[in-house]
């Protein structure tokens, strides 16, 4: 057990190192430079560009830049090129904005897809299963940005509530129930949109896992024992079908950072995704690299956690 943990920590550290090198190389070897983004800008005189290059060590060889960058990252001294703000503080602030979207979206995904998937599997081939299947495909196939506009039109014309942004501007004087409902309305659409794809994919996966398990011999044994169908489905089959999902639990984590670039920019939601998008537009390398690094860290932690969870849940695996 401990050797497994130790080994996987070493392995993941090595992976992280390569991720950091590769993302650094991708960004720095790409043609163009942040100082040349806007040659028309009068502020970018040759002297300014030179000072900029000096300040951010752009004249050093690549490996020195790499070391300096990650030194800054780990000591927390890293600043954005655009406005000289500390990057980590900025990310933290945006992260707190994204968090409610992420939590509501994840809750929706996991609470909806399991009942739907299980029901489809139990009544496979029936009306419920077929319509659930079709809707799942529909949701997988619909482009998020298009669906967002359809929903916006629908909500705005039917309920007459504003939904863009985190809250309606200029509501300072309203009573708190109003403020609260306003927040809820603003939160609802983007999180539903963020969850749709997840619900569709996850419910399909639950269904196929369930079908796989329902065909196993031990399900027949359970029925031959005289168990009621509910006990057969929800105890014997579900328990086995759930095993793989324990590992998926760890894979939620990366969603924290990746956020949704598209949805956040449609809804003008000042979250992580939008920040990353703006950073890409401005070629703000420190932010891009930091976001990338943090999300790689989350992916690795996520896989680690899911490996551990699987070890704990499946009695067949012993180290």
């Amino acid at each position: 057990m401990f050797s497994f943990i130790g080994r996987s920590i070493i392995q993941k550290t090595v992976t992280l190192f390569f991720v950091s090198v590769i993302s650094f190389l991708i960004i720095h070897l790409a043609p163009g430079e942040p100082s040349q983004v806007d040659p028309m800008n009068p502020k970018f005189t040759p002297e300014m560009v030179e000072r900029f290059r000096q300040e951010f060590h752009l004249n050093e060889p690549l490996y020195t830049q790499y070391l300096l960058f990650y030194q800054d990252l780990f000591t927390g001294k890293i600043v954005s090129w655009k406005d000289n703000q500390p990057v980590l503080a900025k990310i933290w602030e945006r992260f707190l904005n994204s968090l409610p979207l992420f939590i509501v979206g994840t809750l929706l995904t996991w609470t909806l897809s399991f009942p739907v998937g299980i029901r489809s599997a139990i009544f496979r081939g029936g009306i419920y299963d077929r319509s659930a299947t079709f809707f799942a495909y529909l949701l997988i196939s619909i482009p998020g940005f298009f669906f967002a506009y359809v929903l916006i039109i629908f909500v705005v014309t039917v309920f007459h509530v504003p939904v863009i942004g985190m809250e309606t501007f200029g509501m300072g004087a309203a009573s708190w129930p109003h403020l609260f409902m306003d927040r809820v309305w603003h939160l609802l659409l983007p999180s539903v949109l963020g969850a749709t794809g997840g619900i569709a994919v996850l419910s399909r996966y639950v269904r196929s896992q369930m079908l796989e398990v329902e065909g196993q011999d031990y399900v027949r044994t359970a029925r031959a024992k005289g168990l009621a169908p509910d006990q057969v489905h929800y105890k014997h089959a579900l328990r086995n079908a759930l095993l793989p999902f324990v590992t998926m639990f760890g894979l939620i984590l990366p969603g924290l950072i990746g956020g949704s670039v598209i949805i956040e920019s449609i809804f003008s939601w000042p979250g992580m995704g939008r920040m990353a998008y703006e950073a890409i537009l401005a070629r703000d390398y420190p932010i891009i690299l930091t976001v990338n690094f943090l999300s790689a860290v989350l992916v690795l932690i996520g896989t680690f956690v899911s490996d551990l969870l699987y070890l704990m849940v499946d009695p067949r695996i012993r180290l």
Binding site: G226, L227, D314
Partner: peptide, 24 residues
């Protein structure tokens, strides 16, 4: 039938490894 199964008629299957539920 549930009252009959396992109570009056029970069954032993061919492959005991797959016929027993691995997680119980």
């Amino acid at each position: 039938l549930q009252d009959i199964r396992g109570n009056q008629i029970s069954m032993v299957f061919q492959e005991p490894l797959t016929a027993l539920n691995p997680v119980f």
